[in-house]
Each structure stands twice: as structure tokens, then as C-alpha cells.
Design a protein around this nucleic acid. Structure first.
Lengths: 199, 199
DNA sequence: ACAGTCATGTTTACAATGCACACATATAAG
DNA sequence: CTTATATGTGTGCATTGTAAACATGACTGT
């Protein structure tokens, strides 16, 4: 191993360098345009080098998506721990949407069409991220309804993120939904019962 | 024009035949695999024929997505009109998710990465579909909060549909979310459980 | 009827892509 | 030092999106 500066044939840590290059490229163009060859070029290796570390393109994208889920998890955990308990759930929700907006293409990749093959560590990462939300919801609900409730809340923030990413909020009459608006939408759904049923 | 059986050079109504062929192919494979050439083949014309009707592949996909939004609109309107008023909102929600599950790839295309170019009739179709939901929500809410509320509800059902499509519900511990489970999740967020359980 | 115009479909061509295969080279093991 | 193994390179092929030039057939005015 020694110093990772052998400049010639061997790269030293191509495996993670490829993921880094892919993330870089995702920050520049859309997800369709991301070609394996471009990733290899960016990493400074030949077009076929990635195949020594990932069986195919899907596997590389799965690895990229996994880093996305890890980032999402820390974002959620951070939002949760820096908020008073009675606002932690809302904080996680806005953090979720904010993460999606700040990593648009990556986020779309994470929740894109299902990756072929198992990619079980991807699944583990997404499960861990989901666990952060799960734990908070379980604090606030009787355990019997927790599973239903957490899926509902996850659906709410996930759908909101997706609709904003797709520009569908313009359809609803909102052009640029800022953070305050996002928070209002989420909070509105959480308060729905009292407001909607007792007019 | 006459009968659409001129078998030789001219097709008669390639424009819509292409959309039909594309929808057919979407029902068979994933969205990445859908190539313009395959669509042309399925329609029985040469690879370049589609370019006489659509400037590029994106435009064809936009037309396909538009039919998807039209179908969604009728599904929502139908669910709304065949339910008692106090359950119409919930009915629209489950109809939304059901449409997504029954047209997985098409649904993903509709809400996929934003189409380049304007495609303003696509936008019109999605707006019309959204309008069906909007109108129902406006019946049940004071108009001041309607816009926030309808976006929240749309986010809920859209996110739920997306998560199920991506298989993320397995992460949450649910393998096969059937319609009853879906309804329970939505109703749980609306806190309509009392109505469901105790008539 | 007939020549001309134009929308529509075909053929050919080209660059980019994912990947299979054979080869090269650097590091580790004996 | 030899050799085995991991890692990177080069070449080649089928498929893709699309530009350019050509073909065909329906509609026009005369």
C-alpha cells in the first residue's frame, strides 16, 4: 500500500475515486447524461478500469446512491438532535426536503428506478436513514400505529420533495417554495385533524 | 385519408401510433430500455420516421407522459364522483396510488427528470389532473389554507406511490402493501380512523 | 389530365455509449 | 528471482440518438 502516490499504472484507491467522480459529474449535468466513460475520464483512468471494481454501471450507481443515503441519514440525525423534542419531527421533515433540494440529481438517483441485482448494502444504508425517522415517530405515537404513521409521514415529506424537484408545485400555483412554505405545508398536514374537522 | 389501410409508404396517423407503441413498450420493459428505434420498429416504420412528428426523443416521451396525466385525471375524477362526498378525498388518494401501481413505468416517466423544452401541453394536462384534487380539497377547507393543504395532500399520496414503486416500503417492514394498507396509511395521516373503524 | 409542391417516410452516416475479450504491469508470495 | 494475482489499458462490437440527403405519394392550380 505505502504512499498513495504511485502515479503511473495503478491508482491506489480507484474504487472510491470513481464514486467521487460520479458525484462530481452528477452535480453538473442530469442523470441520463452520466456515462461510465465520463466517470472514468474524470477519474483519470481508461474506460474499462471501472469494471475491475464494479460489475457494471448499475453497481457503480448503487454505490453512489448509497453515499446519498448516508448523507441523508446524517442530515436527518443532525436536524433531530439540534431541535427541541416537540419540534424534532418537523425539523426532520424540512431537513429531508432540504437535502433533496440541495442534491437534486443524487436524490433522484437514490429513489430512481430499482437497481438490478441485490445491492444489499444500498438497502442497508437506506434502512438506516429511515430508522432515524422511525425512531422519532415511535416516540410520539402508540407503538401499535407507529408503522402506519411513519410511512405516512415519510410519504408526505418524500412526495413534497419529489414534486418540488419535478417543478410540479408551479402547477399548484407556487413558483419558488422557500423553506418557510415547505414547513407550513408539512405542519399543515400534521394539524389537519383539528382544523379540518371542526369548522 | 379514407380508411387507414394504405399499407405502403405513408402510415396515416403515425403521430399517435408512436405514442401507442411507446406505451406498449413501457408496459414490457423498464424506462431506460425504451429506445426511439424500438418504438419506430414497433410502429412498423423506419428509425428516422418519428422525427417527422417529434423534434427529438424527449418530445415523444413528453407526449406519452401527457397521456399518462390524462389517464390519471380520469381515474381521479371517477373515484371522486363514485364516492360519497365525505369519502371522496380518501377515494382520490387511493385511486392516485392505485394508478401509479398499475402504470409503474408510465408513472415514473410522468414524474421523472424534467423534460427539456417547454412542452406546455404536458404542463396543461398535469395541471388539469391536479385540478381534480384541488377542487375536492377546496370543498373541505377554508379557501385561505386550501393551497397549502392541497399540496400537502398531493405530497402524501404522491410520496406513498413513489415509495411503494421504489420498493422502499420493504425497508419500513411492509412487503406487499395492499389497497387496504394504503388506505390505512392515508387515512392515518388524515386521522380519519374513527370513521373507518367506528361507523 | 398533368406538372409542381410539400408533408411524410427511408437510407445512410457518425459519434457516443455499455460492455466482452485479450493484453500489460505493478505488487505480493514463494 | 520467479511467479501469481490484482489492477489498469486497448481494441472491438452492438446499440443508441440524430443530422443529411433522398424517395414517395397526396394535394395543388392550370
Amino acid at each position: 500500500m505505502s504512499t498513495s502516490k504511485s502515479p503511473s499504472y495503478h491508482h491506489g484507491d480507484l474504487r472510491s475515486a470513481l464514486v467521487g467522480a460520479a458525484v462530481e459529474l452528477l452535480g453538473e449535468g442530469d442523470v441520463e447524461k452520466l456515462s461510465l466513460r465520463a466517470v472514468a475520464r474524470r477519474a483519470g483512468v481508461s474506460s474499462m478500469a471501472p469494471y475491475r471494481h464494479y460489475p457494471d454501471k448499475e453497481a457503480l450507481l448503487a454505490a453512489v446512491a448509497q453515499t446519498g443515503f448516508d448523507g441523508l441519514r446524517t442530515a436527518l440525525a443532525n436536524a433531530d438532535s439540534t431541535s427541541p423534542p416537540d419540534r424534532a419531527l418537523l425539523a426532520q421533515g424540512t431537513a429531508y426536503v432540504r437535502y433533496a433540494l440541495e442534491n437534486q440529481i443524487l436524490f433522484r438517483l437514490m429513489f430512481g428506478p430499482p437497481r438490478r441485482g441485490d445491492h444489499c448494502d444500498l438497502r442497508a444504508s437506506s434502512q438506516t436513514a429511515f430508522g432515524v425517522l422511525m425512531q422519532r415517530v415511535e416516540h410520539e405515537t402508540e407503538p401499535e400505529a407507529a408503522q402506519t404513521r411513519v410511512l405516512g409521514y415519510w410519504s408526505l415529506v418524500h412526495g413534497l420533495a419529489m414534486l418540488i424537484l419535478d417543478g410540479q408545485t408551479a402547477v399548484a400555483g407556487l413558483q419558488a417554495p422557500n423553506l418557510a412554505t415547505i414547513e407550513r405545508i408539512i405542519a399543515g398536514m400534521l394539524d389537519l385533524r383539528s382544523e379540518i374537522r371542526s369548522p
